[in-house]
Design a protein around this nucleic acid. Structure first.
Lengths: 345, 345
DNA sequence: TTGTATGCGTTATCAT
DNA sequence: ATGATAACGCATACAA
């Protein structure tokens, strides 16, 4: 009894034919067999520790209970909760997650997708950040995370970045800021451009214009540091900086400290993502919390829906974000000469 | 031409039999076919965009190029780099990673392993933390991470926790500390007991005994906070605390601050793991860096070795750790009455 | 309701 | 060196 039991073994023990056992064991077709024999078969399966051979099943049904999950890099702290959410939703449905990292490299992504396609996967969850098209045919189910194609024919789940940035800008304006700069994320990522646009929109809603924008070539601390140095070297004077994400904000902290500028007394800083431990920084970072786990969970739910009914229209989910006020935003000091237009709202 | 090409299509185009095509396309058996026809077959495969159906292959060969990776929770910051290392090593060998979280629940682990076993996986990497036996037969290849069975018949990769803790204790003693307490991790985890034992050993190597030990019921900030309160509520006076890991150390920071104790001036604190951002805490945490990525990478290498040659003896790898000195350890103040035995080394 | 027959795509064995 | 054949385990169309 070394080898795992097959459905034939189960059938034999239950004294039925393999086809009957198959029907009894499959929830889909269970009602096609009498309750009495079904119970006997289930019992036999349990006794033998039967677990179906998924390779055989996949070969036969041309699909599997495995979903490909492709992300840039698991070490980026936004992805673990997303992947965890995906995995939880998948497991509830009896599905498994096949994980792959691309490091944002288009070729790696193609290779990985090609390899995975050979695995008869039921679908894909793509969280890669570049904005180019989806390199998969229309026959496979796909859900995009943190990213949307310009064409609306692919399901996606994103956070409402725009609302988050506008909330940040509103907070700043409420606190009396009018000279506000932006450390924008890479403009070849959808989050980077969305937040940049929302920053512009949020400002203009208050009749303001940006006091300086610098673009980061990565969502990294180093890039944030460099961009801050550039922003301030240009002689622009700001009382607040909206960073493209938390990492960039942390880099900004470092540059500010080096420049002898205090945060938040001299310049307020905001982040984006609410990564672990930004609440423990000095000062604790005011930022926007993104429901990463929920994004992953809902993405998997959406994918499961599409797998169950491929003809269903691809939904595009936008999840709300939450403003997290901490200590990196201060009311602009009275000694700081207020902008002439300050009284207007 | 909707459906993906099969090996039969390739064979037809190359005007050979499917069996020949199979031989030509498989690196293992390529030399059993003439170079001329082999080239023709490879060309045909490329022309048709042929990619083998892994379900059929798995069904036939009773194995696959997929490895199961089981961890407690991806959101625990030690796991992402481990999983990334695993994935990189696997991909270099053309393998894929099937990921599952157990939340440390034994039943969940059993279920997951049962589900995965049905997938004809080539092997498993288990990073679950409980110390009980491995719930898999001897026929499947397994490598343990951060954990070893008491029996030495299973391959494993661990960090040298003992050396790390001893380095921490040595540092503390060098700095004049002799009243040292320990916030031990859960004693049903191998890391928890290993570090506890190493703490005792390290101390006794200097002729010291612990000035207090409290056990945490989890490797969490809250548990660290609670344990610190208990330790100090007992009236014990320590000048240094060795925490079971970084999270516990962070909880310790919190409790100390609440008690009006300054770190490191009043009490020094050490962590373990060197999680992201502990270098940005106040004070920056002195800790031990574990080569998480390498652990994952080497674990996958070991597994691949065992898959290639199941009769090879199960290796047990111990990777070196690195002491990271930052600002949470101070020389004990002169005003603090030194222990009578201080002069002994 | 249950049994029979067939094929999914691949590779291993045997024959040529 | 290549071809023919069978079998891996399962699910389904069809027959009973």
């Amino acid at each position: 009894m070394d080898k795992p039991a097959t459905i034939k073994d189960v059938a034999e023990l239950a004294r039925v034919h393999a086809a009957t056992a198959s029907r009894a064991l499959n929830p889909q077709t269970r009602d096609k067999v009498s309750p009495r024999t079904a119970a006997r078969i289930v019992e036999a399966a349990r006794a033998l520790g039967y677990s179906p051979n998924s390779a055989a099943r996949s070969l036969r049904t041309r699909t599997s209970s495995v979903v490909g999950v492709v992300i840039p890099d698991l070490r980026n702290p936004v992805f673990p909760p997303i992947v965890r959410g995906v995995e939880d939703a998948l497991r509830e449905a009896g599905y498994l997650a096949l994980l792959g990292n691309t490091d944002g490299d288009a070729e790696r992504e193609r290779d990985l997708l090609a390899t995975m396609r050979g695995q008869q996967l039921a679908g894909f969850i793509l969280a890669t950040s570049k904005r180019d098209g989806v390199p998969l045919g229309p026959d496979v189910s796909v859900v995009l995370v943190n990213r949307r194609t310009d064409a609306g024919d692919v399901a996606s789940v994103v956070a409402d970045s725009g609302a988050g940035v506008r909330a940040l800008v509103n907070l700043l304006v409420e606190r009396g800021h009018s000279r506000i700069g932006h450390l924008a994320g890479p403009q070849d990522t959808s989050t980077g451009v969305e937040r940049y646009r929302a920053f512009l929109d949020g400002l203009s809603a208050h009749g303001l214009t940006p006091s300086g924008v610098e673009f980061c070539d990565a969502f990294s601390e180093q890039a944030g540091y460099d961009a801050t140095r550039r922003l301030l070297a240009g002689g622009v004077s700001v009382t607040a900086i909206v960073a493209g994400n938390d990492m960039i904000a942390l880099g900004c902290y470092g540059a500010l400290a080096e420049l002898g500028l205090r945060c938040p007394e001299d310049v307020s800083v905001t982040g984006f993502n609410d990564m672990p431990f930004v609440d423990k920084q000095r000062p604790a970072l005011t930022t926007v919390r993104i429901p990463h786990y929920d994004i992953g969970y809902e993405a998997a739910r959406l994918l499961l829906e599409r797998i169950a009914d491929p003809s269903s229209p691809p939904k595009r989910l936008v999840l709300p974000v939450e403003l997290i006020e901490r200590n990196s935003v201060a009311r602009v000091a009275l000694s700081d000469p207020p902008n002439a237009r300050t009284g207007q709202n």
